[in-house]
Nucleic acid binder design. Structure first.
Lengths: 123, 123
DNA sequence: TCATTGTTTTACCAAATAGCAAAATAACCT
DNA sequence: AGGTTATTTTGCTATTTGGTAAAACAATGA
């Protein structure tokens, strides 16, 4: 189901181990062993995490003697950032007057949790 | 395991249905029914997606007559954007000379796919 | 050729996720 | 009270995910 690139990227990022690996890769290439070192996980588990990152296009693996150095590929991160950035004005509180007004009327004249003004109020 | 906020946020975002809901909510509050309308999903499924968004703090639900209007909460998005933004210089190609050089030497004097320079090369 | 190092693959398991249909709730409107 | 509308909860599947241990592979070095 979750075949689209953006979902793939975001779910790859939704794990602390994998994010830590990407942080490490900011410094440059690293082998699987180097990436595994900080974690108390079996190599197969590490290998699986790397496969998730690879499937999302977030890393690239080469072959060098017996090692498989991993390199960061930032493109999917840009895509993710682009999506989130469309909300930037919201969290920066930069709604202009119109937007704020639209939010208001969308919410209807208040009365949270209780009855709205009755329209068919016969008496 | 995945208890940290950022992981929660990213995995909530890693689904096209939930992202579409957030896009809709950019326009303002919407009831569960309104949010469900574009999708060919049962109400329970919709309800679950909303619960995921709520648990991640991405939406807030109020009660208004029989409806439960949802509102966007952008804070978790900011946190996610902050994490990703640390890689912005990478995808914008703004590695300065030093960083590029560090990447180079980290990768060792080339020789991909074949043997490295032997250190114990006796002759 | 054989041992070593680095990494992946192969079962296998437990827990989480995503979906459904049907029943249960909740608040409103007679 | 009874009916309607909006939404959630309750079982119940099927699939995915994250982990393990043990075996398999691949390249190097002796």
């Amino acid at each position: 189901m979750t075949t689209d690139t953006l979902s793939l990227t975001l779910s790859a990022l939704a794990d602390p181990t994998r994010r830590a690996m990407l942080v490490r890769l900011r410094e440059g290439q690293a082998t699987v062993g180097q990436l595994a070192e900080p974690f108390d996980l079996s190599m197969p588990a590490i290998s699986k995490h790397l496969k998730v990152l690879e499937r999302a296009g977030l890393i690239e693996r080469s072959v060098k003697a017996q090692t498989r150095p991993c390199t960061l590929r930032p493109e999917p991160l840009r895509e993710a950032a682009d999506w989130i950035d469309r909300y930037r004005d919201l969290w920066e509180g930069r709604l202009d007057r119109l937007d704020a007004y639209l939010q208001e009327i969308q919410a209807e004249p208040a009365n949270e949790t209780q009855s709205r003004t009755p329209k068919g109020d016969s008496e």
